Structure formats: structure tokens, C-alpha cells
Amino acid sequence: MGLIKKLNKWANAHTYLLLDLVRILLGVVFFVKGIEFMNNYQEMERLASPFQEWPGGMIFLHYLIPAHFVGGLLIVVGLLTRWAAIAQLPILLGAILTNFLGQMDTNNLMLAIIVLLTTLFFAVYGSGKHSVDYYLKMQQ
């Protein structure tokens, strides 16, 4: 718990509006990807085809859409940002693996790598000053 307090103090001392906007954009990307996967099930099935033979492959598919919806909303408002970002990491690693195990699509690979790096940053950095987490902390 001490590590999280140190990270929060550091993040609040080094927060910028631009980082909050990047956090909000990241959450919107997750939410829109969740909608895209839900509306285009055939594309999601095609992307997940390399994982069909793996144990838990179907569980992963059922985890993907709700994790994108809930995680995206939490990241947008800045509530439990670190936990929401950590929940996205298996999905992003799967997105990168899909390109190497299935059909290579460089656009999807680059998007997945950029989103993975941004998500890792916010998993460490946290939500910043312009967030529900900071507001709730200040109300105590």
C-alpha cells in the first residue's frame, strides 16, 4: 500500500492537463473498441481464431467486451484507473499475439503497441489530479 501512496503523491505533483486528456482518450478508445467488437461479431471471431484451440479461449472472448466497456468508462472518469488499466493488459497482449499467430495486420499491431504502452504508463502513473479518484481523496 505504501508504494501506491508514493505513486499517487508523485503523480499528483507531476500532473498536467495533457496527461489527463490522454487518459480520457485512452478510455474512449477502449470503449469504442468494445462497441466495435460487439457490433461486428464476425470480425471479432476472425481475430480470435488463433486462440480457439487454447484452453480458456472462449472465456477470453467473453471477457473482452465487458472489460473494454467497464475499463474504458473507469479510465475516462479516472476512477480505479490503475486497476482498469491492469485489467486491459491481457487483452492488449492478446491483440499483439493475434498479429503474430494469425494474419499480420501492421495497422492493428501498431495501434495495439501504442495502446499497450499508454496503458502501462497509466497503470503506473494513475489517474492524475483531474479525476474522480483525486476528488474522492480530497473529500476525506
Score class of each variant (00 low, 15 high):
Met110Ala: 13
Met104Cys: 05
Gln140Asp: 11
Gly128Val: 04
Thr106Gly: 07
Leu19Val: 06
Phe51Met: 01
Val124Leu: 14
His14Arg: 09
Met138Leu: 13
Leu3Gly: 01
Ser131Met: 10
Ile59His: 13
Gln139Tyr: 03
His14Gly: 05
Met44Glu: 04
Leu89Arg: 03
Pro50Gln: 02
Ala11Asp: 03
Leu116Thr: 08
Ala123Ile: 02
Lys5Tyr: 08
Trp10Met: 08
Ala112Ile: 03
Asn39Lys: 09
Ala123Cys: 05
Leu101Met: 14
Thr106Cys: 02
Glu43Trp: 11
Glu53Lys: 12
Val115Leu: 11
Gln140Glu: 11
Lys137Thr: 12
Pro55Gln: 07
Asn39Gly: 08
Gln42Asp: 13
His14Leu: 02
Leu64Trp: 13
Ile91Trp: 09
Phe37Ser: 03
Leu47Asn: 14
Leu26Trp: 00
Ile114Lys: 09
Thr15Pro: 00
Leu92Met: 07
Ile75Tyr: 02
Pro55Phe: 09
Pro50Glu: 00
Leu17Asp: 01
Glu45Asp: 12
Phe69Trp: 08
Arg23Leu: 02
Ile91Asp: 04
Ala67Glu: 06
Asn99Lys: 04
Leu79Gly: 10
Leu117Val: 13
Arg46Ser: 14
Leu101Arg: 11
Glu45Met: 14
Ala123Thr: 05
Ser49Phe: 02
Met1Asn: 07
Phe31Gly: 04
Trp54Glu: 08
Pro50Ser: 09
Trp54Val: 14
Leu109Val: 05
Met110Leu: 14
Ala84Ile: 13
Leu109His: 06
Lys33Val: 03
Gln140Thr: 13
Trp10Tyr: 15
Phe30Cys: 04
Leu61Glu: 13
Ser127Pro: 07
Phe31Ile: 00
Leu109Trp: 10
Leu74Cys: 13
Gly71Thr: 01
Pro50Ala: 03
Leu97Tyr: 12
Lys5Leu: 11
Leu21Trp: 14
Leu97Ala: 15
Ile96Ala: 03
Ser131Asn: 09
Leu120Cys: 08
Ile65Glu: 01
Leu47Cys: 00
Glu45Arg: 05
Tyr16Gln: 11
Glu36Met: 06
Val32Thr: 06
Phe121Trp: 11
Leu111Tyr: 08
Leu17Tyr: 10
Met104Leu: 15
Gly34Tyr: 03
Glu43Ile: 10
Asn40Ile: 01
Phe37Asn: 05
Leu47Trp: 15
Val124Tyr: 10
His130Lys: 10
Phe31Ser: 01
Phe60Ala: 15
Gly126Lys: 06
Leu80Lys: 15
Lys6His: 09
Pro90Trp: 07
Met58Asp: 12
Trp10Asn: 12
Val22Leu: 12
Leu7Ile: 10
